[in-house]
Design a protein around this nucleic acid. Structure first.
Lengths: 129, 129
DNA sequence: TCCATTGTCATAGTGTACTATTACAATATA
DNA sequence: TATATTGTAATAGTACACTATGACAATGGA
């Protein structure tokens, strides 16, 4: 599924969205340890943003322990040991957010099943394969 | 839960975060129809941002049909939530809600895939088949 | 060695989020 | 009528997200 969905008009900065999608790929295992990420220049072309913005994201994600970059070689996913801790904190945020979503759905008499159905459609439309 | 969690270092604009938390309160019923929202000045103090930023958020949320503001009086949750009523039936309502959920997820750096995974677990635990 | 590829950095320009400050308009109350 | 409170608006300054461009450093292969 290696395509991207960046929304330049959502108010959320591009580098935040890109970072999220990269980390998501790593955590889900789509990009396993040792996997070489797209080059900064290639990714910049793919998602149609500037090289500097991609570089900024890579640096940040490296700071968080998910990847390691090497000049002249490329950028690679680190072993799981390195980012498990970061992933844990992220998981807790996720739980909290999911709980809120459920509360909101309940308040409107919307079941999680219904909601997820629509979200699935929404995601499929966003990334036309 | 009437406190706020604005993260000024998350990269997500404050006005985006504040908008979502306000809408969330309205949808969950914590702020029912007719409820008077904090004054722009009070909210500015509470969340430690500028009055103009709060005012910008209120204007936006009013545009979306959730609240109505009156000079000299205050800002109130609308009695008929127009974003719901204007929607033609339950399908539209669902779409609107799902869209909001996606916006909120984006703003928190959470992908729909991750969210749905957690929601699925949550549902399975609720009603073990 | 030469050359292409990798990530990084510096500079400069544009747009916007956020701030502080001040002033104004509409409303409620004494 | 005064006074306080409400939301709104104008101005100006700071910070940063994003861009384009060009140059540099490390790596690897011909």
């Amino acid at each position: 599924m290696s395509d991207w969905s960046l929304d330049g008009s959502s108010g959320v900065p591009l580098y935040v969205q890109l970072r999220q999608q990269i980390i998501s790929r790593i955590i889900t295992g789509e990009w396993p340890p040792g996997f070489q990420l797209p080059t900064v220049r290639q990714l910049a072309v793919d998602v149609r943003i500037n090289v500097n913005t991609v570089s900024k994201v890579y640096s940040q994600v490296e700071q968080e322990g998910f990847i390691v970059t090497q000049k002249g070689k490329g950028t690679f996913v680190r072993s799981e040991l390195s980012w498990r801790q970061s992933a844990q904190g992220r998981g807790e945020e996720l739980q909290q957010f999911a709980k809120l979503v459920k509360e909101m759905a309940d308040a409107q008499g919307i079941s999680l099943g219904e909601l997820m159905e629509v979200l699935t459609d929404m995601r499929n439309k966003e990334r036309p394969s």
